[in-house]
Design a protein around this nucleic acid. Structure first.
Lengths: 196, 196
DNA sequence: CTGAATACATACGGTAGCGTATGGCGAGTT
DNA sequence: AACTCGCCATACGCTACCGTATGTATTCAG
């Protein structure tokens, strides 16, 4: 538990606070990330918190930074993969049960804090570009790839919204992957997408 | 600002509280709907609030009920209209600048209160059915109409999410209507949608 | 063994918010 | 003129937080 923390590095306990905060964040949103509540969750007093963090704001900053770097990590890691592999990864990441709730909570947070909104928007642009790249490599014309990447992103966001409110929807047989496949199939057959 | 209130009816002040609450709700979410804050907004004391309402919960209930009845009103009113008119109304309602923020705030609320979630889900099912109906009347086979109504709904929700976080996205030349048209066009051309 | 640094605990003052109790006041009633 | 009642103000106790100040137990260097 805290054995390796007290021996040398102080960062272990730090990560415990972060983990507890992220857990509450995913379940109940930013507003529920309260110093004294987290202290109770961890079985310590808030005196500990203010040793590891300047204030609540610093904790929230670290949460955001951590999410940001994790997102960037897998997004850039997709660089060399094949289009199908990248597509699978995108779907897997955005439908991952361990991530969806915090993704949604993050966007709710962004709606009330413009600095958060900007950083979320930056990541979101990268995701849209990633999707557009995949579509382009599969044969979509550049302009239509861009347009459909936006639509794909919206389907993802809409799916997240519903999946985090309705357990039945989340557990339904048709998951995000199926929905997206249908959209892409229609897009490639429909408009002037694939010049084949 | 409280000019319209004190003349005669007692229920008028009630609606003032509701209006103030809904304004804050749309801007900052349920958590920001605070009795003492609304009292300050209206230039009265909270003694007034507790005369009109039993407690904060009753105000929130009324907010939810009001939204619910308004949604039901326009949904059932679409009964006799032509498919294009219904489609236009659906797009107009879900992209209405005066409504999008409260729609999003409501879904964030639903995520933290299961009773709210159920009532939102009920309305959402009606909307999906409405969309499916329109698609069916335009020539989609029943099963594909259902499938694409879900996708259309997700695009709507995703658009709402982005539009309420990114002003540039909201003001972009391609609005919800354009995106949805593109999706429907692709759907009708792509899969076994239109048996023509 | 001593002293300093670490990693907490305890106690405090302060704000924001809830709900209640009670008082006041103007308008209509008799 | 006195009474009532609708509508609001004031004052209160309470809880949940925040951040700070200070005390304390453990660890580890020298």
């Amino acid at each position: 538990m805290a054995s390796s923390a007290s021996s040398r590095s102080s960062s272990l306990r730090q990560s415990d606070w972060l983990a507890a905060a992220l857990s509450r964040f995913a379940d109940q949103g930013v507003e529920s990330v309260r110093v004294e509540v987290l202290a109770r969750d961890l079985g310590v007093s808030k005196g500990s918190f203010y040793w590891h963090f300047k204030d609540r704001g610093e904790l929230l900053d670290r949460m955001l930074s951590r999410w940001e770097s994790e997102e960037l990590a897998w997004i850039v890691a997709e660089g060399g993969a094949t289009p199908p592999a990248r597509w699978a990864e995108i779907v897997a990441k955005t439908a991952d049960p361990d991530r969806i709730r915090s993704e949604v909570a993050l966007r709710a947070w962004a709606r009330r804090d413009s600095r958060v909104a900007m950083r979320v928007a930056a990541i979101e642009r990268k995701k849209a570009a990633l999707i557009a790249d995949v579509l382009h490599e599969v044969g979509f014309a550049p302009s239509t790839a861009d347009a459909w990447s936006e639509i794909v992103l919206m389907v993802c966001l809409g799916w997240l919204d519903r999946a985090t409110r309705d357990r039945a929807f989340f557990a339904a047989s048709r998951g995000l992957g199926e929905f997206l496949s249908e959209v892409i199939l229609a897009a490639s057959a429909g408009s002037s997408a694939l010049p084949r």
